[in-house]
Amino acid sequence: MKFSYYPGCCYETSAREYDMSSQAVCKKLGIELEEIEDWNCCGSTAAHSTNHLLALSLSARNLALAEQKGLDVVAACAACYQRLAVARHELNGDPDLLARVNSVTGLPYTASQRVLSMPEVIASYGVDNLRARVNKPLTGLKIAAYYGCLLVRPRSIQIDDEENPHILEQIMECCGAQPVDWHYQTECCGAGLGISNEDIVFKLVADILEDAAANGADCIICACPLCHFNLDLRQAKINKKLKQKFNLPVFYFTQLVGLATGVNPAVLSLHTHFINTKTIKRKYA
């Protein structure tokens, strides 16, 4: 399997764990990722909240570059995934809009290649195949799989059910971990509002953490840098501001797949989290 890889702007900074672990896991499983040469930002929420044509065109440039290679695109970041997939979906069904966007980018895009998320790519490796590759099972590790919004909504691009998804739980079960039943799988963490209106995000994230803890999770897994930032980094702030004592490590799901399949823990960047991951690392690495 070979894909065009879209790392997204946070790949070296706030989401370095996701980029590093995705690359390492794919390498381990023999999934080839070829970075889209000279990619640009997908525009994220800032673009689609400001100008529809701009948002589509920023994403379309990346998709056009990937299309030249003839490969399906995989985006690690869930926000990038949503923007690229929405652009592809809208342009695929609307030849006039596609022509308009192409006249903006100056690149001939035909919306032929699929856009996939990282959970889909790992899942496409196959449940049995993945299970066969697990040599350090995460036995007894209780995880709360958190999807947030961007992978399951809107419906046109969802990778799984919008209210009751399973894809991450399935992957985690292959790795020997034990997913818990909880209620906040697909509740919003507030994403970018964390910068502009942090108090709102405190409440949303505190609710998510509280439910995960109440249902016995040892940790949360996610597949989105925005979710990770809010759940991990802001957890310390929430403890301070809301007088809570949360201590839930938050992993990218690829980090745990990496541990289970025997990837060198050093390349999974387990030490750059804000909530200490040592206990889990000691037990499973």
Partner: peptide, 22 residues
């Protein structure tokens, strides 16, 4: 205002560098 300003700054970064400089 804070949301609008955040969005505007974000887009300015893309306009200048093609990518977000956090």
């Amino acid at each position: 205002r804070h949301v609008e300003l955040f969005n505007r700054n974000f887009l300015n970064s893309i306009r200048r560098y093609g990518r977000l400089h956090e």
